[in-house]
């Protein structure tokens, strides 16, 4: 069933665990910020005022996006492998496309928000 090597499988496994540790922190910060941000209503102005033009938030969201684009596709690969009869090569192709999509859209969004605050 498996065509990849032990080495690749182990590195992917490790990457998923390390990205999970990063995500644990990112998700907590993200959720806490959301809870704080919605106090007294949510507005685009408020979000842009916080995130726009702020290099720290930009770095935070870039790290977040990279971690998600590493973590999620590896999990998706396992799910597809266990739940479907798709050939391994097809699964690898699908999740690679998914990873790139998450990465590109995420990075674009992070820079997009950052850019809204730069005049």
């Amino acid at each position: 069933m498996t065509t990849s090597s032990l080495r690749t499988e182990t590195y992917l496994w490790l990457a998923q665990r390390i990205s999970a540790m990063v995500l644990a922190v990112c998700v907590v910060v993200h959720l806490a910020t959301m809870i704080v941000a919605v106090q007294g209503g949510l507005s685009a102005e408020e979000i842009i005022a916080r995130v726009g033009g702020n290099k720290l938030w930009l770095v935070f969201y870039l790290v977040f996006v990279v971690s998600v684009s590493v973590h999620a596709p590896i999990g998706l690969k396992t799910i597809l492998r266990e739940m479907t009869s798709l050939p391994t090569r097809r699964i690898e192709l699908l999740v690679t496309v998914f990873a790139l999509l998450v990465l590109v859209l995420g990075v674009r969004a992070a820079f997009g928000l950052y850019g809204l605050g730069v005049s």
Binding site: M1, T2, L6, E9, T78
Partner: peptide, 11 residues
Amino acid sequence: LAAISGDDGCL
């Protein structure tokens, strides 16, 4: 260890 490693093994 080689026999039990990878996705069909412990991972």
